[in-house]
Design a protein around this nucleic acid. Structure first.
Ligand SMILES: [Mn+2]
Ligand SMILES: [Mn+2]
Ligand SMILES: [Mn+2]
Ligand SMILES: [Mn+2]
Lengths: 216, 216
DNA sequence: TGCCATTTTTAGATTAGTCTAATTTTGTTT
DNA sequence: AAACAAAATTAGACTAATCTAAAAATGGCA
């Protein structure tokens, strides 16, 4: 249906538009690790195909059919990640790059069978909801950990950016999805936080990390 | 490592070189459904990378490193086909096109884990042997059904070309891998054959079909 | 209000992969 | 041996996807 590059652009625009805002050319190019001029080219092509509305100099947002296509990609990506962890024993910090390739294999039957094989999972290994066949997924009200204050008791629900390096960092610190977290201190001068986990262990995380952790 | 097109060319050359002969430009182009001139271009590129020996006007054959790369592809393709049938419940005549895509996902860890998950299978759903991590696979002496004569009792071991349309045809006729076959008649004028299966059913197949069935 | 830094787009180039049409080579057939 | 048909290569064109460098637009601030 679409090329790999088209699909990756649709996905990038989708994840930059969560709050309904338009995705800027530079934000897309940063996410895909390409140059802004390449993104401009692609936005024109996607606009011609009716997948995005591109207002030159003011970014792009998905049309209804573009959003539909993006949700198919997100569904594929998260189902493959779940497969890799649940069936093949990958760690959650090893799956992103492989899923980034697998998501472009185009076969509706494949994805539906995979979904059933996995027991119709609702969340991927990073806590992100998996869209169903019709593109519906559960919405959850999450906040970033760095907006919490001392005394807050929360639970880690997902990770904003599932880059392998961040996930590996969390694994080394002993933080996993579902971890119960109590904020014991917030240091003003660098934004780092002291946390106590449900199992009693204490640790500290930098502002950069706290910013990535979405809690409930 | 290689592009999708490079990988598909290596695989095509490999399967056209079983008897040690060189693969002709036109045979490759027919298999990949492209034009001969496109194949010539690709042969030059593969020759420059040291993957094939291309003697202009006389075809190409794989070098040692080209053969190694081709075997990796064949391993991936057949493992994915096995996964689709064994784990996702696909029929043997539905898997080829999807595996044709999945084989290009490049992750050694993925394939090794998949291999283990499937229990290190030695044959794919079409009866073709699966190379192991080092590229070794069992060799079997097979003959095409159309070389058999009346009275021969054989067993279907694999199918020469696993195109979905041929496999679907066989399924409709009730022939499957492992079927015991007795040749009851060979018609000279069109090469078609009358067969009796192990379960007692009788049927006839055309020369075109008999030519594709590899028996033991 | 006008300057200017930042962002975005445009212009022009490159590589991979494909095609059609023309040319060359090979091997067979008169 | 010359002619011919088939196969292969070359020449030239096109699309997709990228880049660098130059030009244009935007939006904040002196
Ligand atoms: Mn991707
Ligand atoms: Mn994920
Ligand atoms: Mn393929
Ligand atoms: Mn097969």
């Amino acid at each position: 249906m679409f090329t790999r590059s088209e699909e990756d652009h649709l996905k990038a625009i989708h994840s930059l538009s969560v709050t309904g805002t338009k995705a800027s050319t530079s934000a897309i190019s940063e996410r895909l690790d390409t140059k802004a001029s390449s993104v401009t080219d692609m936005l024109k092509r996607l606009a011609e195909k009716g997948l995005v509305a591109h207002e030159p100099y003011h970014g792009a947002k998905l049309t209804t059919s573009g959003r539909k296509a993006a949700l198919v990609l997100i569904r594929r990506h998260r189902l493959w990640e779940t497969f890799l962890v649940d069936k093949l024993g990958f760690r959650w910090d090893e799956v992103h790059e492989v899923a980034e390739q697998l998501e472009h294999v185009s076969s509706e039957k494949l994805i539906d069978r995979l979904d059933a094989h996995l027991g119709h999972p609702r969340f991927d290994p990073h806590g992100d909801p998996i869209p169903d066949k019709k593109g519906r997924m559960v919405a959850r009200k999450l906040m970033a950990l760095d907006t919490c204050v001392v005394g807050d008791r929360v639970r880690l629900s997902s990770v904003r950016n599932s880059t392998d390096v961040l996930l590996h960092h969390l694994t080394r610190k002993g933080i996993a999805l579902g971890s119960a977290i109590t904020v014991t201190a917030v240091h003003d001068f660098d934004g780092s936080m002291e946390l106590k986990l449900g199992d009693g262990r204490s640790l500290s995380v930098s502002r950069e990390v706290a910013d990535q952790l979405m809690v409930q």
